[in-house]
Write a protein that binds this DNA or RNA. Structure first.
Lengths: 220, 220
DNA sequence: GCGCGCAGTCAGGTTCCTTGCAGGTAGCGT
DNA sequence: ACGCTACCTGCAAGGAACCTGACTGCGCGC
């Protein structure tokens, strides 16, 4: 679920877009013109994305965008307009837009683009139990708690968390964590599982790394 | 200046896009097919945006995108394709794309979109722990304390602070601090890390330059 | 020339990742 | 209940990765 600001003067379009967003589980804050947009989408508003019509009755959407930016609103902006020429698209981007969609547009595509914008603005999705395996930080996080992982620990956990709830077989874990042809004793795997469990405890993670006897491991 | 990964099998398009990006002051890493893209755009690569053709000879660009994502590459992805139907656009977005451009496209618009993606991908020049890396003075400041940095120290630290909290791999640090093809011993890197740590201590900086064994360094 | 700072190297010490043993425990079939 | 087997746990050796302090050479300004 994302919260979207929508500024559009055409009642038909406003209604269609609002309904489509709400049908797909999102929340919408609407504005009818530029002045209202500045007021309702100001720095206080918690928005994940903003849809701005360029052809507003009282102002140019590009000016509204720049005003919102200087007011401290950092949510990504998608411009909506009848002007389809490349030149107009470019001026939209240079005004600080993050995306651009010419009318007539497909509502499904608009929603997909808005979701993509919102997804980018927020931290990556959590796979399971609020647990985040962060490749960039080479760490495992839960809330604001974080533990660093050794290379092997990371690869093993990545293999297991990539299929939350499913049982990952031992040999699959080995294939993911060690180079091809490496001869690794079963016990080595056990040792790593043990240390990964210790780190999960350290995080107070609400998940358990369970073993399915004779098969492999699963996270739940 | 942004660094862009470009994966496209058509030589004509590859050439046009590469030249256009370089003419506008950007840096390009190219790949001819999906396998090469996985190899060159992997988690190690420092990319601000990725342009992916969907119709590749050896793989579907959407699969390549998902593979890159699970490999830890977090740079925004723009899909390029001959398929213009709405259905195909949606499947692109659901594969984790951040933007979409159907062929034929205007090169200027492509560049504008890529710049918008890159701008959004790394928004705030995050000030970490009140630490300021000053290019003009070639110094590192914390409050009113200041230390001067040697050119190499500066480039190394710049590479690391550009991704606060994230682990910057050793060879990425080397690539950032030394010219292409320079053969630099691992120990040289260690020595510089040591000097940088000494300067951080000198400033009473509230951050630590930690090492993640077998991976790289991180600032926190 | 002389002093100074930067770049790069080396040897030696330290940390901690990796691995596997030894022994205990728990699941499963009979 | 019994035994077999898979798995868990504590521990310790080995070694790669890393840190440290000291050293050399180079270029540049005075």
């Amino acid at each position: 679920m994302v919260t979207v600001g929508l500024c559009e003067d055409d009642p038909a379009i406003r209604r269609v877009v609002t309904q489509a967003l709400e049908l797909t589980g999102h929340s919408v804050v609407t504005a009818h013109n530029g002045g209202e947009a500045l007021q309702r989408f100001g720095t206080d508003a918690v928005l994940d994305a903003i849809i701005l019509d360029i052809g507003l009755p009282d102002a140019d959407g590009r000016d509204v965008c720049q005003a919102l930016r200087s007011a401290g609103q950092s949510a990504p902006v998608l411009f909506l307009t009848a002007l389809g020429a490349v030149h107009d698209r470019l001026s939209g981007f240079s005004a600080g837009a993050d995306d651009y969609l010419p009318k007539p547009f497909d509502v499904k595509e608009l929603i997909a683009r808005v979701e993509a914008l919102a997804r980018r603005g927020r931290p990556p999705a959590e796979p399971v139990g609020g647990l985040v395996l962060d490749p960039a930080r080479h760490s495992l996080r839960h809330g604001d708690a974080e533990v660093l992982l050794s290379p092997t620990e990371f690869r093993m956990l990545a293999a297991i968390t990539s299929r939350p709830g499913e049982v990952v077989r031992r040999h699959v874990v080995v294939a993911a964590a060690w180079p091809d042809g490496a001869r690794v004793s079963e016990n080595t795997v056990d040792s790593y599982i043990r240390r990964i469990r210790a780190k999960l405890r350290e995080l107070d993670a609400p998940v358990a790394l369970r073993t399915v006897r004779g098969v492999g491991f699963t996270l739940r």
